[in-house]
Structures are given as C-alpha cells and as structure tokens.
Design a protein around this nucleic acid. Structure first.
Lengths: 193, 193
DNA sequence: CACATATTTCAGAAATTTCTGAAAGTTGAG
DNA sequence: CTCAACTTTCAGAAATTTCTGAAATATGTG
C-alpha cells in the first residue's frame, strides 16, 4: 500500500468492516479510498495505492457500481474511467440502506408472505407460522416507517434525529392541549392518520 | 434435514441471510429453528433436525450465546442443556441492534476519533480528515438518536414508528400554535431541549 | 472413585470466497 | 481497418471460513 498513514488506517479499517458486512475486504478498501479522495481516481491509481491486482480493482468497482455507491466519470482528452463516491454522507447512508433493504429485507418479506399462505399440517407448523407472522408484522412496520422517513429532506431528517425520543414528550404535551373531555380530539385524529 | 416443509424453508432462508450478515449459515439455521420452536431444544434435537454435526451445533450455540440471542435452560431431572430464543421479536431486534452497534459502530467511532487527532501532513490528509469528520458526526448523530429511542418501552416505540414522518407535521402545527411574534416560544425552547 | 452422560475443543478436511495473470473484449484515433 | 490504450472476463491459485470426527473435558450419580 502506498498511502499517507491516516488514509491507510482508514482504508484498512473499512476493509475489515466491509468483510463483516456482505461487502468484501477489497471492495471496502476501494470505497474508503474513493471516499476520502479529493479528486476522482482511475483504476490504475487504485492499483498503485492499494497494491491489489488490476482485475481485482475492476471487479470491485463493478460491485460498487451495482450498489449505486460510485459514479463513473470522464476527464476531457482522457480515455480512462474515473470514479468518485456519490453525494454527501447522508446520501451515502440513504443509498446503503435502500440497497440493503432491496437485497435483504424485501426477499425476506416475500419468503415470509409465501410461507404464511401455506396450510399448517401440524401443531408445530401452526406455531411456527404464528412466530413468522409476528416477524413479518414487525418488518412491515419498520419498512413503513422507513418509507416515510426516507422522503424527508436531509435537514428535516437531521432535525428529527436530534429530537430523538423527545418527540414523545411533545406528543404528550400536544395530546393534553387538544384533549377534549370524552371526545376524539383533533390531535388524536391526526395521530391516527 | 428433518423438518416440516414450512419450517425447513424458513430455516434455509435464514441460513442464507445469516451468511450475508456476519453470522454464518449454520448459526442462522440454528437460530431460525429455535425461533419457531414451541419448546426449548437440546443440541441433539438440532443435530437431528438440521443434519449438522454435534460439534458444529455446539459452536453455533456458543456464538449465539455471545450475541445474547439465546438462553440456556434446564429441565427438571434432565442433565441436557436446552435452549430458547430470548424475548419477543422487538426484544430480539433490540438485542441485534445493540450487539451490532457494539461490534461494528463503536470500534469505527473510536478509529475515527483517533485518526482525527493526528496532525495532517499534507493537503490530501487534510481533506481526508474533513471527510472522516463528516462521517464521524453523522454516526454520532445516529447513535444519539438510537440512544434516546432504545429507552422507549416497546409500545411507545411502536407508536412512534407508526407515526413515521407525520411527526414533522405535528411539529409544524405545534410551532405555529406556540409561535409568539418575535419571541422565543415555549415550543422552540422545548425543541432545543 | 468409577461410570455414564453431556459438552467442548481442536486439528485437519471440505467448501467457499477472494484474488491474480493471461487472454479476450472494447473503443477512439489516425 | 489497424493500432494503442484501456477494461473486463475467467480459470485456476491462494486464502479464508466452515465443518467434522475424535479426543479431551466436565458433571452428576451411585
């Protein structure tokens, strides 16, 4: 590896982290390097700096493109392909979540849905299906929330995050304010959508 | 494998999913089987039903215990160890998130913190550190939010999730209600915590 | 303690994943 | 079309991870 120490440490760490997630070590390293680079890099730059084979870099870049994590660019009068990461850190997180959902959560939901349609042939299967339904409903709820939240603009999202659980308190205050004795208040109507 | 078809399909799916996460295939299968079982199982039950070696089951259970995902039990007059999953699905999700944070997010934060202390020796390192800081702050914000939300009781959490982004609207309503011309309102005071 | 029942460890086999160099493919310029 | 510059593919090598059987360890019972 041929990198300044701080960058090398960062790249190595993300290589390790990558291998804990589905992404492999070299893909993690390539991405980390691109993330901290001030300029787009071409494959040969990465070969030099990361010390891996040209073909490995090529495969890694292909995978990163399939994750929508990297953008292909060109420089004028240069036939090489250059790459950069895509968007700011929040956009990166959004993309990561979106892609992982697509690859992991959605297929799981569809397996569960299918299994829940089967007729249980015995008590154990019945019980298993009940547990699967519990899981299915939990995932659906998280997906519904995600589907709402992903549409927020980033500064709204940040605002919401900084609020944390204080939302609860605000809801309580609001409920008290709008509460009408024995009636369905405007607040609860809104809360229930 | 020696399992009813619906359960087998579930177990196989979670095996595959497990291998996309850090968890390996057989550990995923063991957990899936325990999750849908009405009764605690002993290691030999798992050997029978999953068709893997006794030692493999033993190692898998050890790993699941280290993740706090499985509880060891005993039956009266029986020397075998029995195992169950731990808590309802929401508790399981909490545990998973907590453990993954501990193993993946916390170490990353500490690497980043350390790298941000270094003196940049050149422009590229300076730029890299800026990007790392951006990432560090994003992770800190997510952790802060998580730290708030994890304390909520499950039904409060569910309530919050079903609310989704509608929280935003409620905030807007609230801001409008409390807004005093030119003044720091009770609402904004609360929002800023 | 001796024995039977259980669980864990661990060295190496088996399987899977990652990585490489060589060859094939692509593309723009002359 | 031909060449040079560049990228991709892919078969097999290398590395890593997973899995197993055999041996070691632990534990309750008489």
């Amino acid at each position: 590896m041929n990198l300044p120490p701080v960058i090398q440490a960062f790249v190595l760490h993300f290589g390790e982290m990558g291998s804990r997630w589905g992404i492999n070590r070299t893909v993690g390293q390539i991405y980390a390097l691109l993330y901290v680079s001030p300029e787009p890099l071409c494959a040969d730059d990465m070969v030099d700096r990361l010390g891996m084979s040209r073909s490995n870099v090529s495969m890694g870049l292909k995978e990163l493109q399939s994750w929508n994590l990297v953008r292909l660019m060109h420089k004028p009068d240069d036939r090489k392909d250059y790459f950069t990461t895509l968007g700011d850190i929040w956009q990166i997180v959004r993309t990561l979540v979106e892609e992982r959902k697509k690859r992991e959560v959605d297929p799981t939901l569809s397996v569960l849905r299918e299994l829940l349609m089967q007729n249980p042939a015995m008590a154990d299967e019945q019980h298993a299906q009940d547990k699967m339904r519990e899981m299915y409903e939990m995932i659906e709820m998280l997906c519904g929330w995600y589907d709402d939240v992903r549409r927020l603009e980033t500064d709204r999202l940040i605002q919401l995050l900084s609020l944390g659980a204080k939302v609860q308190k605000i809801l309580e205050v609001k409920d008290r304010l709008f509460a009408l004795p024995g009636g369905r208040s405007k607040a609860s109507a809104e809360k229930e959508g």
